[in-house]
Amino acid sequence: MSSLCVITSKAPYGSLNAKEALDTALIAAAFDLKVSLIFDADGVYQLLDHQSPTGISQKKFSAAIPALELYGIESLLVCRDSIEQRGINPDHLIGNAQLLSKQEIAIHLESTDLVLSF
């Protein structure tokens, strides 16, 4: 089984980037790849709880996160530096994401067959 890591590094709203990254991860899981997701840079905002985008007529992005495990994406990884730089309390992240250092992320990517960066 090939492994694929999707790196998502943009905020959940303001562009479609986060949604299109997530779609790619979901399709890869449907193709039976071993899929991991890394939330990096502004991508960590995707995991914040209490999102309320009704004012901009958007769907709530974070609603998709708890369902990822059902679709076979069990590995949700978060860049620790990125949340510290943004002053985010890890307790406010949804989805049982695992915090990793830059070095741990590098090791993870080294052991992954395919990487798609968004």
Partner: peptide, 19 residues
């Protein structure tokens, strides 16, 4: 569909993406 990207990436020697 996106499956064409995933399937193609699995069977190719290299996937190169241009962000």
């Amino acid at each position: 569909g996106l499956g064409q990207l995933i399937e193609g990436a699995v069977v190719s020697d290299r996937l190169v993406s241009f962000g």
